[in-house]
Amino acid sequence: MAKSVLLISRQAPWAGIGAAEALDIALAAGAFDLPLSILFMDDGVLQLLDQQQPQALEQKDLSANLQALPMFGIEQLYVAQHCLTVRGLADNPLALTAERVDDQRIQQLIRQHDYVMTL
């Protein structure tokens, strides 16, 4: 059986290429049928903000790309609730269906996967 990967995406979509690179890894894993889960953590939770207008910065629409994850078979999506809370986003609607997880659940997620990859 293929080894499972937990991808931890920790960068804001407008702050360099980290967020886009993480998504590329996820889409590649999906295209090749590898078991991969994504955890949005720290500034990475900002990728899930609704109503972004990246065109204003002449950037690609990462939140539109993220919506494609389930089509690529990447359906285990998690977001760190604490990181939403400290950014004033505790109750905000998210642009992507992701399970909100607490620290204890994140510990479990790390232990459940063979590899952890952080970007």
């Binding site: 920790r10 953590m41 720290d42 604490h82 990181c83 620290d103 994140i106 510990q107 790390i110 232990r111």
Partner: peptide, 12 residues
Amino acid sequence: TTQLSSCLRVLS
């Protein structure tokens, strides 16, 4: 960065 603080929150 938040590397350490985030790591400590999810340390098992």
